[in-house]
Design a protein around this nucleic acid. Structure first.
Lengths: 209, 209
DNA sequence: TTGACAAATGACACATTGTCATCTAATATA
DNA sequence: TATATTAGATGACAATGTGTCATTTGTCAA
């Protein structure tokens, strides 16, 4: 997390720093991003940067978290809309993710986050729902999920389901970027995966040949 | 890939370089690893390093690939042993992975690979089966998989199944390290996930309440 | 013996990071 | 008003690292 001094900054200065950082992280993946570039763009002295953040990763993860928050809210909305059907909600979120990307910069930001998934980003993205910090939202989701739909024997397995869906979704998303799939292809692949998850990779006893 | 010069080296020199590199990559994650340390340990001049490798990532991915090859062979063996049952094979591989780690160094090497999954490592690990480069093994796997077991409508979906299993497996593995789970807990979680994948996250029509 | 070429070598230019001593400004206190 | 206190701003700097390149070394064929 950024230090308090960052939040004490004027809205204007803070936004200009964020803008500079987003630009840098859209230019290159985190590993190649440099503090020097960001402060040059933002026009602040080097010392100040370290007054606000531990280091460049601190800033990066702050930005990723901001984005993650947005998606989390969206997902909760979709879960309501689809009456607790997590796969329907995940599918709509995925489509929204793909279609709602107008800004070249923002796209690159996500692209690099995907291509260079460090652990903290990864958990932030795949655990974006199962996050102990946030008990309220956690409980909200539990209450929203339609358990009758799921093939589970206890509440604990709800989280297994959510984790499976999110890790497969993340994988699809990464693949879209690395294989440069069109949105149509990406959604087609995603749908196949989701159906396999829904009905099982294995035939049930009855239909077994 | 390392340059030809690396492969022209004497077995002894090559092994000492690999040993030094493994030590460095077990000490810290790739981002923090330094060429300077490796050459100091291996006792080779700086210029030589760049004679052998493009850069430090080149070396790192070479080592990861070496490890991946080992697992790929193991998986194929397990697939045979379990008569084409991919989930049984994946489960045994996972257990083997967890149990067969005697060396502290090797463990850390994997740990960092997991915690700091850059795209190339990630695809190398999750796509370790579906890898266009290697048509022979690719075909071998197709012929090994018991399609009657799977809930698929065409051959293409075999790869969807494999990808789903591997990405959920990878996720489990990462979680074991980040949450410092015991092997028992890890395997328990893994088994729950695999059962959900097998029989489906959703109840089938028949059993729906 | 010599020429040619692959490989080895390490000094070097350049870039980047995080720190720290010092300065500035704003606010509290007497 | 004068002074003290404290948060924050600043940029020079030491430390470290990277990749390159001109030069040297070694090997092998003619």
């Amino acid at each position: 997390m950024p230090k308090q001094t960052f939040f004490n900054l004027s809205e204007e200065k803070r936004q200009s720093l964020i803008a500079a950082a987003e630009k840098e992280f859209s230019r290159v993946p985190l590993v190649k991003a440099s503090v020097s570039n960001i402060i040059k763009m933002a026009g602040i002295p080097r010392g100040s940067f370290y007054q606000y953040f531990e280091n460049i990763e601190d800033l990066y993860h702050y930005l990723v978290d901001l984005e993650t928050q947005k998606r989390k809210k969206l997902f909760i909305n979709y879960l309501k809309k689809h009456n607790g059907d997590i796969i329907s909600a995940a599918t709509e979120l995925y489509k929204n993710f793909l279609e709602e990307m107008p800004d070249e910069n923002e796209l690159n930001f996500f692209k690099f986050a995907m291509l260079n998934v460090t652990h903290r980003v990864e958990t932030s993205l795949t655990n974006f729902l199962v996050d102990q910090m946030d008990r309220k939202q956690y409980d909200e989701i539990i209450s929203l999920v339609d358990k009758d739909l799921l093939n589970i024997t206890n509440d604990d397995e709800i989280f297994h389901c959510i984790n499976i869906v999110t890790s497969v979704a993340l994988r699809n998303f990464i693949e879209k970027f690395t294989k440069e799939l069109s949105d149509e292809e990406a959604i087609k692949n995603f749908t196949v995966d989701m159906n396999l998850l829904k009905h099982g990779l294995y035939k049930s006893e009855g239909e077994h040949v």
